[in-house]
Structure formats: C-alpha cells, structure tokens
C-alpha cells in the first residue's frame, strides 16, 4: 500500500514538466526514504535523478519498496487536470497495475481521482558516487536559462569555463560567436540573486546546448541552480526543491578536439 499526500500539488506538476522532455518512460521508486526516480534520455548521454523526501509530504505511507513504471507524457496529462492550488495524493495498492492520482481543491469542495495504467520498464540504473568537483557555480536559475536559450540561437554546444575571473559560457556557429561572462557577485539584495563561484582549480568543458536547454525546464522549481564541473566527470546541474529534495541532471561532456 502506497499513499503520498502533497499539499503543494503544483510541485509535482512542475517536476513532471521538468523531466518529460528529456525522458519518455521511467520507474518511480517509493521507499521509506522518499519518492525517487533515475532515468536516462534515449541516447544515454543525460540522466535525471529526482528525490522527494518522505518528510516533505503531509502524509507518506509506503509499506514496502515499490517501483512504478510510467509514461511521463501520460502522467503529465493526468497532472495537468489538477488545479495549481490542489492537494495531490498518489495511491497504489501492492501488486496493482495502476496508480491513482487524487486531486482535492483547497476548500475540499471538489475531489477528483484519475487512475492510470502502469507499465513494465526495463531501465538501466547507474551508480553515481559522491564526487569532489573542481568548480561549483551557484547562480539564479532564470539567468542560467536565459544564457542557454540565448546561446542556442548561435551555436549547438556551450563551453563552460570557470576561472578566478568568473564563469564563461561560450558558443560558436555559422553566424558568429558569443561569450557571456558572469562574475562572482555576492553583494545583492536577496541571496537567491547571487552568483557564487567555488573553484579548486580552473576547468573548461564542452556540452550540447540541446540538453542544457532541456534541463532548464526545471527553472520553476528553484530560484537558484548549482552547476558542478570537473574535467573528468559529467556536469551536474542541480535544482533544489525547497524542503523536499532535488532534481539533478547529469550530462556527459563532448570530447575535446
């Protein structure tokens, strides 16, 4: 028996919108720890890892570990029927081949339930160890989204370089080149507007902009984004989900020529 009640239902809607462009089908794993997902895109270049900790739910019951295979476009279709202020409850019985999404309006005058068929998904799970990164950049998520969008109108790849001077995003294409430098800036009115660079050593890596743009679909989930870079590792683009967990995107770099 599984029953997860989330008063801030819009959060689940945003999570789905954040990942459904990257991944088509995925297994949602439920355990005592929380509601999680790990899935790769079809070309196995990018990976999304989601964690919503059990403490973040108003009610969390998970009698035994459960993995539920879902088509994310179908989940999104269901969740789009929930109002932005609705309370969402996810329910499943042991051994059932369906999951139920229940939507309650804030004043309880409308209750809807949507039952969705589950599917068997044979997905590969990768073991991602904790790592020390050469550089970690924290910046406003809207700024990062803007940079990725702007650069993708010029080129297909972005070179992210971190030095003492700041973080530089560069691209080149048929029509020309572009460089955007963001300097460390801690003197802002609100902490979420700061750009903070923690650098152990300079690093420069090249990534496909198509994936970076896809990651920025998570922007509504968090005011800030953290980009962790090391020369021999995939980049980690993390959006913290307030008091609940995170959504992390991993992207393998392009091979330098």
């Amino acid at each position: 028996m599984l029953e997860l009640r989330l008063v801030q239902g819009s959060l689940l809607k945003k999570v789905l919108e954040a990942i459904r462009e990257l991944v088509t089908d995925a297994n949602f794993d439920c355990s005592a720890t929380g509601f999680s997902l790990q899935a790769m895109d079809s070309s196995h270049v990018a990976l999304v890892a989601l964690l919503l900790r059990s403490e973040g739910f108003e009610h969390y019951r998970c009698d035994r570990n459960l993995s539920m295979g879902m088509n994310l476009n179908n989940v999104s279709k269901m969740l789009r029927c929930a109002g932005n202020n609705d309370i969402i409850t996810v329910k499943a019985d042991d051994g059932s081949d369906t999951v139920t999404f229940m939507f309650e309006s804030p004043n309880q005058d409308k209750i809807a339930d949507f039952e969705m068929k589950l599917m068997d998904i044979d997905s590969e799970h990768l073991g991602i160890p904790d790592a020390e990164y050469q550089a970690i950049v924290r910046m406003p998520s809207s700024e990062f989204a803007r940079i990725c969008k702007d650069l993708s109108s010029i080129g297909d790849t972005v070179i992210i370089s971190v030095t003492k001077e700041g973080v530089k995003f560069s691209t080149a294409g048929d029509i020309g080149t572009a460089n955007i430098v963001c300097r460390q800036n801690k003197t802002v009115d609100k902490p979420e507007e700061a750009t903070i660079i923690e650098m152990q050593e300079p690093v420069s890596l090249t990534f496909a902009l198509r994936y970076m743009n896809s990651f920025t679909k998570a922007t509504p989930l968090s005011e800030t984004v953290t980009i962790s870079l090391s020369s021999d590792l995939p980049v980690v683009v993390e959006y913290k989900i307030a008091e609940m967990g995170y959504i992390r995107f991993y992207l393998a770099p392009k091979i330098e020529e």
Binding site: S43, L47, H125, L126, G127, A252
Partner: peptide
C-alpha cells in the same frame, strides 16, 4: 562536430 561521450563511460551500471 565533436564526439559525444556516454554516461556509461563514467558511471557503472548497478
């Protein structure tokens, strides 16, 4: 075009 690496060359399958 620069070649793209796969995630499996960094992380093991578990």
């Amino acid at each position: 075009k620069q070649p793209q690496q796969a995630l499996s060359s960094f992380y093991p399958s578990v």
